[in-house]
Amino acid sequence: MGEPGTKDLLSLEELEASVAMRTGRKHTLSILVENKPGVLTRIAGLFARRGFNIDTLTVGPTDDDRISRITLTLDGAVHPIDQVTKQLHKLVNVLKIRDLDPQDTVARELALFKVAVDGVQRAEVMQICEIFRGKVVDVTKRSLTIEVTGTTDKIEAFERMVRPFGLVEMMRTGEIAIARGRGET
């Protein structure tokens, strides 16, 4: 048994049991939407009420000012991606959805790291920065602020490298992604 209407105790397994198919990998959805009021709320609301968890989300203009692009990433191990895209398609303001194949996609995010450094450490951090092709965008006696762009993996690797020096704060934009080749994303 085990339904809320009955008094039987619910087991955790029952709560977790689900029939939906999982792909088990990270998915990047590229979504074109009409640039109308409330579109982002509709998408965010849909995710919240269907219990889909967004890992990252970026929104920006496209070359057509009536249309915006939303790039979002979510975990296919947790969510039935097929159901996510079908539900998104039901939103009237959603024009096009592409579930990007990681093999055929260039994905980047931008991150800013503020690292606490003094004297000796400064050179070491700058060396790491160079290896990661980062850019120092602000410097004080006691800190360095570094801009890094790249894949999520690269940014996470950079974070691991500088964290021991004293990471004051970190900001990340979330991923944007574009299909490889001549065709449109």
Partner: peptide, 26 residues
Amino acid sequence: KLSEFAPRAKFIHIDVDPAEISKNVP
């Protein structure tokens, strides 16, 4: 109980809403 619904059956599902298809039963 969903896991024991029509356990021997194959399913044809006709619906105008694609999101309903394979939502509960593949």
